[in-house]
Design a protein around this nucleic acid. Structure first.
Length: 435
RNA sequence: GUGGCCUUGGUGUAGCGGUAGCACAAGAGUUUGUGGCACUCUUAGCACGGGUUCGAUUCCCGUAGGUCACCCCA
């Protein structure tokens, strides 16, 4: 029986574990997240994006309206929270809608007609986890809202995303671009698709039959074998784009060439969020074991603001999956952010020295010198070993003799030279050596 | 939501129907106040629940988690 009790203590009960698809980010991972966030901050600053933070919870109807009632995200992947007051809230599944909401709610367009915003934070989607797919995951995103409806912004969002990926040294990138048309040409194309598919409905899979009615564009990215033969003669969307849209796409592509960004046109690229219009794009990483899906994706959303009750305002945005980026960096052998070692390691010998060390450490920290210690260790050896492992350049050694002389030893751990200095000159002596 | 595979100390891994080895990591030490190497010792484990069995970590079932595929996406 006592055996059993020990067991119970060791294993955390299932009921207390992290929920499925959600993970702790432990201190060992810090170096990767650090690298990611530093890059994000650097790129945002360079490209003139300002950070915005929106609540984790929003009214569920925000996403229904923005992302679309018919989408998988809204239909089956949202975490819904009912408050005691009767509000229906959702854990945000993405962040473009909240950013657009904030733009309207705070009339950001009034202070400056073009807003360049970026965000970073957790998103939530209730789906089955697998590699690169979690129920709580993190995104970093860039949005430009407002200004004229100019393909230049599409290009700028893409180059920003591209530069961010480069900053992270991510290789083997593949950029896919497509246009899904506008209010004018998309409905026409949808009808053409329906006309094309109608005679074949009985031979199509169940999903496609549903898509036929709800979202004909998705017929294009069905992967069911049954449906493949019919794709060959599908009317090509590029031919059906209205003049405005095809000019828009052409210009975006010209800018890509100008910026020397390689891309591939993919007329089957249809994103699962309804707010997109015209340009849509995704970045993939090619290579073995890189089945993470898109590492970044985005597009233009000219009708989103309007759909949320704002004035008609164009926008373009991109989102990157933080966990996927880190996965790719690891897989491609990138080096994580270096931890900055603390400058000096305080070592004591004996009870009296231990007590006195406390004060010295505080004095150093106030002198803006970072200090580590292992005051709980007693042996000098063990403490030096720790100092070595921490990578501190200097160790301070305080023992009976030093206390008596009112001095302290500064040991250079790189070349093993040490010197005894008066305690009152400690801060300046350290600073001299750290230069 | 459906289906396949997986689950051994902190980490990575052996193993067998009779309760477990190894490596790394961690801690202590190799005499008296000096680290990185080496050596010694120590700590620590069969995901959870049930069944078959004299006995299960090993076989069977279920649950959970992970992973892969479909779907969709970051």
């Amino acid at each position: 029986m006592p055996d059993k009790k020990i067991k119970e203590k060791k294993t955390i009960p299932d009921g207390l574990k992290t929920p499925k698809g959600m993970h702790d980010i432990l201190p060992g991972e810090e170096v990767w997240w650090d690298k990611l966030y530093r890059a994000a901050e650097k790129i945002s600053e360079f490209y003139g994006f300002h950070k915005i933070e929106t609540p984790i919870l929003e009214q569920a109807s925000l996403f229904e309206r923005a992302v679309g009632e018919d989408t998988d995200i809204v239909q089956k992947e949202m975490y819904i929270v009912k408050t005691k007051g009767g509000d229906v809230l959702a854990l945000r599944p993405e962040c473009t809608a909240p950013v657009a909401r904030a733009f309207i709610e705070h009339s950001l367009g009034k202070s400056s007609p073009l807003q360049k915003l970026w965000y970073s934070g957790p998103m939530f989607r209730y789906e089955n986890p697998q590699a690169g797919r979690f129920r709580q995951f993190h995104q970093i995103g860039f949005e430009t809202i407002g200004g004229p409806n100019d393909p230049m912004y599409d290009a700028q969002i893409i180059i920003t995303t591209q530069r961010f990926l480069e900053e992270l040294k991510i290789k083997n990138l593949n950029l896919k671009i497509n246009s899904i048309g506008c209010r004018v040409c998309r409905p026409i194309y949808k009808r053409q698709l329906q006309t094309y598919y109608k005679p074949h409905l009985k031979q199509l899979c169940a999903d496609c039959n549903r898509r036929y009615a709800t979202n004909p564009l998705r017929l294009l990215d069905c992967k069911n074998e049954k449906c493949q033969p019919f794709k060959e003669k599908v009317p090509n969307f590029f031919d059906k784009l209205c003049t405005t849209c095809s000019t828009h796409l052409k210009t975006v592509l010209e800018y890509m060439d100008e910026l020397k960004i390689p891309y591939s046109l993919d007329n089957q690229l249809v994103r699962g969020l309804d707010y997109y219009s015209r340009t849509v794009f995704e970045f993939y990483v090619e290579g073995d074991g890189m089945n993470l899906g898109a590492v970044a994706g985005g597009g233009r959303y000219d009708y989103l603001l309007e759909a949320l009750g704002g004035r008609p305002t164009p926008g373009v945005g991109a989102a990157l999956g933080s966990e996927r980026l880190i996965e790719v960096m690891k897989a491609q052998g990138a080096t994580p952010q270096l931890r900055v070692p603390r400058k000096v390691f305080m070592i004591h010998v004996g009870e009296q020295a231990k007590k006195k060390s406390l004060g010295i450490i505080e004095e150093l920290r106030r002198g803006n010198i970072s200090v580590t210690e292992a005051l709980s260790r007693e042996s000098l050896k063990a403490q030096l070993k720790m100092a070595d492992r921490e990578g501190a350049p200097l160790a301070l050694i305080l023992g009976q003799k030093e206390i008596f002389e009112n001095s302290i030893i500064i040991r250079d751990l790189k070349n093993s030279l040490q010197e005894n200095v008066p305690l009152e000159r400690l801060v300046e002596e350290i600073k001299k050596r750290l230069k």
